[in-house]
Amino acid sequence: MPYVNIKVTQEGGPNGTGPSSEEKAQLIAGVTQLLQDVLGKNPATTFVVIDEVPLDNWGMQGQQVTQIRAKQS
């Protein structure tokens, strides 16, 4: 029973949006197919969860992504 957790940032600031519903459906279908193709996993028992993380809650290089992007503007 595979469980895959995909984390993506919400774009456009604290009230921004992440991937569209169509993009999420493509991610879920693609990951499920990949697990079936590579590992022979049954799609009926494959779980894919997508978490959307606000940019203030995502950090890299010791900073929040909002800070990094503000410097790039």
Results as ranks from 00 to 15, higher is better:
residue 15 N to Q: 13
residue 30 G to D: 05
residue 46 T to Q: 02
residue 58 W to R: 00
residue 4 V to D: 00
residue 25 A to I: 08
residue 36 Q to V: 02
residue 59 G to S: 11
residue 35 L to W: 04
residue 2 P to A: 09
residue 2 P to S: 08
residue 21 S to E: 14
residue 23 E to Y: 07
residue 59 G to C: 05
residue 22 E to C: 12
residue 52 E to R: 04
residue 4 V to W: 02
residue 43 P to F: 08
residue 25 A to S: 09
residue 32 T to K: 00
residue 62 G to F: 06
residue 34 L to A: 14
residue 33 Q to T: 12
residue 18 G to E: 02
residue 39 L to K: 15
residue 16 G to P: 01
residue 58 W to C: 01
residue 51 D to G: 07
residue 7 K to R: 15
residue 1 M to Q: 08
residue 4 V to S: 00
residue 6 I to C: 03
residue 6 I to N: 02
residue 17 T to L: 11
residue 26 Q to W: 05
residue 28 I to C: 01
residue 25 A to D: 14
residue 54 P to G: 03
residue 21 S to H: 09
residue 39 L to H: 15
residue 34 L to C: 12
residue 50 I to L: 12
residue 30 G to E: 04
residue 55 L to T: 15
residue 20 S to W: 04
residue 58 W to A: 00
residue 15 N to Y: 07
residue 13 G to C: 11
residue 24 K to S: 02
residue 40 G to I: 10
residue 46 T to Y: 00
residue 7 K to T: 09
residue 46 T to L: 00
residue 53 V to C: 15
residue 61 Q to W: 07
residue 27 L to G: 00
residue 10 Q to A: 10
residue 52 E to G: 01
residue 50 I to Y: 03
residue 61 Q to S: 15
residue 13 G to L: 03
residue 27 L to Y: 04
residue 42 N to C: 07
residue 1 M to L: 09
residue 13 G to Q: 09
residue 17 T to A: 13
residue 57 N to P: 04
residue 45 T to Q: 14
residue 11 E to V: 12
residue 53 V to K: 12
residue 44 A to S: 13
residue 59 G to K: 08
residue 43 P to R: 11
residue 4 V to F: 05
residue 27 L to N: 01
residue 52 E to Q: 13
residue 9 T to H: 14
residue 41 K to I: 05
residue 62 G to T: 06
